[in-house]
Amino acid sequence: MKTPPPIERLVANLKRLPGIGEKSATRLAFFLLSAPDTLVTELADAMTRMKQEIVLCSECFDLTEVSPCSLCQDERRDPALLCVVEEPADRAAVERTGGWRGRYFVLGGALSPIDGIGPENLRIAELEARARSGTLKEVVLATNPNAEGDATAHYIAERLRPTGLRLTRIAYGMPMGGDLEYADHVTVGRSLKNRQELS
């Protein structure tokens, strides 16, 4: 029997989402079909409102309901310290540590020439303008510790060096709860290089 067109249409749309294939899309569609009306209405409303109400912060380019975002407006945060991350999720990860009292800047990705992503596709010009605004003393480059993230950090450092700001990179090392035996030798090597004195 042919699937009714409204279900087919929903499956086709769900398949456009990342990580959702034909099977998952069909499963979700049939779940929504049998779910209470309130659930479906709330879900549709949440998606619509998210699209309408979420904007980019004009200062840090994080996702927010009001621009500038609450973190950029927080006067207890040190405006001279800026932590540069690739994506909003990375900003959230740094914020969860509770150990950063400066501000943030979301680049919107990392350099990936193989995928056609160059400096013009990231917010590097905006970061440069922020660095030249005269309010900063230190820029912490907290891009991911992979090839693209490292290269992005070093590229930004090249661009910002003339500003004379202190440019730092997050440290490399063993993860908490890690096991030396199973770590790759590069991570172990960097952990030894970045060792710290016990006080």
């Binding site: 020439p113 290269a151 070093h154 090249e158 790759d184």
Partner: peptide, 20 residues
């Protein structure tokens, strides 16, 4: 398993650009 990493390529944008 990692045999060797070419760290110098990640740390200089011209090397990274030509490597990519």
């Amino acid at each position: 398993r990692l045999e060797r990493t070419f760290d110098g390529i990640r740390r200089e944008s011209r090397r990274f650009a030509l490597g990519c």
